[in-house]
Design a protein around this nucleic acid. Structure first.
Lengths: 255, 255
DNA sequence: TAAGATTTGTTCGTATGTATC
DNA sequence: GGATACATACGAACAAATCTT
């Protein structure tokens, strides 16, 4: 039961002390089953326990902080605590992985087309009125057609937030993260690559109708219909974005 | 074009100096379009440029190292370099995110069933003979039915490697990562939760037949058939694993 | 093989900043 | 406001790794 955890393959090669300390602390957290918010030993105690200097211990804590596993507060009652690893941070860290790799619009939409209709079907009939209202509230951000390119971008980002939010409502954390991650990539592309430069009234109307129909299907528990609508919606969005000729994700995120 | 990159929302709150330095270095890498392997300024130069102490600079580098963005070597010709962010590291960092969350076997298989048949269909007719041979080589690890629980686990891990490898062969980095990530989670479950305790000759035979048929379909470029086989294979695997009653992923990975 | 040069790794002492009581 | 408890930051010295000669 108390299985020794595997180390990263790179750990077999000579690593410096901060890495060993960081690994030891992680193992300690796992063994004791510590939860986010739980207190970790303070600097002074770690210095003593590991027999290392303050600087080395601090570097180890930085390694853990960068991963979101540890948070630190100064002052009385302060110290180090087990962290949450927020969805935002996980998204940022994974974003770094794709920074040097080519991810095309088509790559993303292959996945969105496979996953989002499935999510919509599963969610039908399982959303609270409050959740449905939240989705409708997001749609208010693009209740009117965009007047210029800038507003068009803002609206597109808002409509991606619609999908990200929807992905949070399911009970499959893995599916929710994947979908949210793709929405984030597309948001970045829209914002940093200055995508969506030409407002198109026809497409705006179609997209908005998709989403209103989708909410109706979700509210009435019609899974098959929700799936269909999302499928059409995704295909339209893909065609739209591909026309924009944006091909690469180039971004570093997070701290 | 030289868009300023957004900082992590948490960065707006007061952060300590190492975080600011780390952000500055990331921006620097982005602005200059540096590639993995490219040289970064040495400690001494950074100390001077930022006007901060050695310790502070070193903590900043640890933050970047933990993300895989920077690698460091000692000795002459040593120093800091832009890192790769390997698939293994990205997998480990994302694994941390799910450590405190519940991910069920069913969650994973919903995704595998949606994604892997799609991958198989796309790959059909596009694999080199060397790649097909590599898959066949992996299958050698379970050419004979397992004699005991321990061997059964080893075989299951090997068959997951089959899927992970297959996901590398596609040209969709996003899809490849997602599938590989799930294979890793399942591998961890198998190894650390001591899954697969009862060898089953019938299922072994079926699973193996699926994979041989799959390779044949891939070789002959029969996408529809490859999709069907993978679909059946996934459904069988799901039923098998759910019978094992393992429900949670509990693991910290990486350094 | 050995010595020297270069660059990161580690320590220790001290001082400062920050949040709580 | 002052005392307390904690992380944060600095600087100088020394250790270890690794490349060159």
């Amino acid at each position: 039961m108390a299985d020794p955890l595997p180390q990263d393959p790179a750990n077999r090669t000579r690593r410096s002390r901060p890495f060993h300390v960081a690994d030891a602390i992680k193992d300690w957290v796992v063994e004791r089953g510590l939860q986010p918010g739980d207190r970790l030993p303070g600097e002074a105690e770690l210095i003593e326990r590991f027999g290392m200097s303050k600087g080395t211990i601090r570097e180890a804590m930085r390694l853990l902080q960068a991963q979101g596993l540890v948070e630190t507060k100064t002052g009385p009652g302060g110290g180090s605590f087990v962290g949450e690893v927020t969805r935002e941070r996980a998204t940022a860290l994974l974003g770094n992985y794709f920074y040097f790799r080519d991810v095309t619009i088509d790559d993303i939409y292959q996945l969105r087309i496979a996953l989002e209709p499935m999510l919509a079907a599963r969610l039908a009939g399982h959303l609270s009125e409050a959740q449905l209202a939240e989705l409708e509230a997001i749609m208010e951000d693009y209740a009117r057609p965009a007047a210029d390119a800038e507003e068009e971008r803002r609206q597109h980002v808002a409509s991606l937030r619609f999908h990200a939010r929807l992905s949070d409502f399911g009970d499959n954390a893995l599916l929710g993260f994947f979908i949210g991650f793709m929405a984030q990539i597309l948001t970045d592309l829209t914002v940093y690559k200055r995508l969506y430069t030409s407002p198109n009234h026809d497409l705006w109307e179609k997209g908005r109708r998709h989403q209103t129909d989708l909410i109706a299907a979700l509210r009435h528990g019609d899974g098959a219909r929700a799936r269909e609508i999302m499928q059409s919606h995704m295909e339209m969005a893909r065609d739209l974005m591909e026309a924009q000729q944006a091909e690469v994700l180039k971004r570093f995120i997070a701290e």
